[in-house]
Amino acid sequence: MEAILESLLGAPKEKSGGKSDDEIMKDLKDGSQLMVVNCYPPCPEPDLTLGIPPHSDYGFLTLLLQDEVKGLQIQHKENWVTVEPIANSFVVNVGDHLEIFSNGRYKSVLHRVLVNSAKARTSVASLHSLPFKCMIRPCPKLIDEANPRRYKDTDFATFLEYISSCEPVMKNFLESRRLF
């Protein structure tokens, strides 16, 4: 996250709309973490089902550890691309919060999981975000006439209200926060 903040805001310790990089990092360190373990058993007809439908992750970053069985796909230029598993490594996905905070400079990753006809697949996702009580908004330092504000403020309560009213698929929640 320090490298991401530096890429967005410049040299460390600069003020960013009232918060220094250190204050932003403290919010992230005090933030939420959710661990999700997924097990996808072999499916005799994998063309008839998805392990997980297309979606983007709500938070800032997701670290994903996957086994050697293929299944994770990301959408790139309207095509689904399989992420090749690499032993002893993590896949890092940008989430909706980082897209909002970066005012769209970083894009959250639309992804899905396919099942396999012969092998079970296991993955462990570690989702990282700001504390539940924090308001997520575009960083003021990233907004100017050439780059107007692109997202509404949001928080975890808004997200929970949204998912209780509809199915959280694709990037629907993020689209609900878009200003134009």
Rank of each mutant, 00 (worst) to 15 (best):
Y40S: 09
T154M: 12
D96Y: 07
V83H: 00
V109F: 00
A3Y: 15
T82P: 00
K152E: 15
Q75W: 04
E84M: 05
R149Y: 01
V169K: 12
D22E: 08
I4Y: 13
Q73P: 00
E2D: 14
G95T: 05
P53N: 11
S56R: 01
E145C: 12
D22A: 08
M135L: 09
P85A: 09
G31F: 11
F60M: 09
L114G: 02
R121W: 05
V94L: 03
H55T: 08
K29M: 13
L179M: 14
L110R: 02
E45T: 14
E23T: 08
E68Q: 14
N103F: 03
M135F: 13
L28H: 11
A146K: 11
G18T: 03
E84T: 09
F159T: 10
G104F: 03
S176K: 05
D96I: 00
I24R: 06
D153C: 07
A118W: 00
C139P: 03
P168D: 06
E14G: 06
G51Y: 13
V36R: 15
K26G: 01
N116E: 03
A125Y: 02
I24M: 14
H97W: 10
A87C: 06
L127R: 05
C134M: 08
H128T: 03
K77G: 09
D155K: 15
G59H: 10
K26C: 07
V92M: 03
E45D: 15
F101N: 01
E6G: 06
G51R: 10
A3G: 13
I86V: 14
E6T: 15
K29G: 14
H128I: 10
H76S: 07
K119R: 07
I136D: 10
A120I: 03
E145Y: 02
A146Y: 00
N103S: 10
L63D: 02
K133W: 06
L8M: 13
K15H: 13
E2K: 10
L142A: 10
E175G: 07
V169E: 07
K15S: 14
Q66L: 12
R105G: 02
N38G: 11
W80P: 02
F173G: 04
S108I: 06
S20G: 14
P53Y: 12
L64S: 09
V124N: 04
L61N: 07
I86Q: 08
T82W: 00
I100F: 08
D57C: 01
Y162S: 02
E6F: 12
E78M: 07
D30H: 10
F132S: 12
Y151G: 10
I74D: 02
E84G: 00
N103T: 11
D153W: 05
E167F: 14
L142W: 00
S117C: 05
V94C: 04
S32M: 11
F60P: 00
